[in-house]
Simulated assay, not measured.
Amino acid sequence: MSRALLIVDVQNDFTEGGALAVAGGDTVASAVTAHLAAHAAEYAVVIASRDWHDAEGDNGGHFSDEPDYVDSWPVHCVAGTDGAAYDPLLVTDAVTHHVLKGQGVPAYSMFEGRTEDGETVGGILTAHGVTDADAVGIATDHCVRASVLDAIAHGVHVRVLTDLIAGVDEQASRAALAELAHAGAELVDGAAEAEAR
């Protein structure tokens, strides 16, 4: 049995000061860094995803001048820009695989992305015999939700580390966590669990 850490979209455009800033994003970046410092050796793979949208076009309707903040959004995380970079508070030295998603199309789940070598998240997990995963990142009610549902569909037991996530909308985030729990995810306060060890 091996475990993976899934780090979802801890990027400048999703943290304070970004194009689609999520309150608490910088705190998540710092907390994930601390978690890696303490626990990186427990993971067979550490996979981090980034939105990586095309500068030209609307990326399949994902970008809009009049966004509804459900299916369409302001311009964000354009490939190669500072907004698409990892938040500087996230230290990525322990990341084993970097996944880019949303190139020309809407993409919420990290399972829709690929590494530069063309590997998929599902393929990486299978190749490393991953049966369990911890999920962290941004945003609870969008890309974290989608990534965790896809991990469960891939047959992985997922723990959502609730102190290492941040959502856009409080009510929608609560609903997303309830949905994930119903789908089989375990909701865990990572810091509290670490103290209990």
Score class of each variant (00 low, 15 high):
41 A>W: 06
148 V>Y: 07
160 V>Y: 02
13 D>N: 09
93 D>P: 03
23 A>C: 05
36 L>V: 01
196 A>H: 15
127 A>I: 06
190 G>R: 03
88 P>N: 08
141 D>C: 07
60 G>T: 10
38 A>T: 08
150 D>A: 14
49 S>E: 04
50 R>W: 12
11 Q>M: 11
20 L>M: 15
47 I>H: 00
157 H>V: 12
145 R>A: 07
96 T>M: 09
124 I>L: 13
170 E>L: 06
192 A>P: 05
4 A>D: 01
137 G>N: 08
126 T>D: 15
159 R>Q: 15
113 G>V: 07
120 T>R: 02
143 C>H: 09
82 D>G: 07
120 T>C: 01
159 R>D: 14
164 L>F: 02
86 Y>T: 06
48 A>N: 01
88 P>R: 04
35 H>M: 05
177 L>M: 14
21 A>F: 05
14 F>M: 11
11 Q>W: 06
143 C>N: 11
80 G>K: 03
14 F>H: 12
145 R>M: 14
88 P>W: 04
64 S>K: 03
27 T>V: 15
135 A>D: 02
176 A>T: 11
179 E>M: 09
8 V>H: 00
111 F>I: 08
14 F>I: 14
191 A>F: 09
60 G>D: 13
136 V>F: 00
96 T>V: 08
1 M>Y: 11
99 V>G: 02
89 L>D: 11
142 H>F: 13
65 D>H: 15
145 R>Q: 14
98 H>S: 07
54 D>V: 08
96 T>F: 11
58 D>C: 11
163 D>E: 03
173 S>L: 08
179 E>H: 06
40 A>G: 03
123 G>V: 10
42 E>W: 05
98 H>A: 07
44 A>T: 01
125 L>K: 01
170 E>A: 15
185 A>H: 09
135 A>S: 10
110 M>H: 03
45 V>T: 08
44 A>L: 04
32 V>I: 15
130 V>T: 02
152 I>D: 09
48 A>E: 03
72 S>N: 04
177 L>D: 06
5 L>M: 00
143 C>V: 08
118 G>F: 00
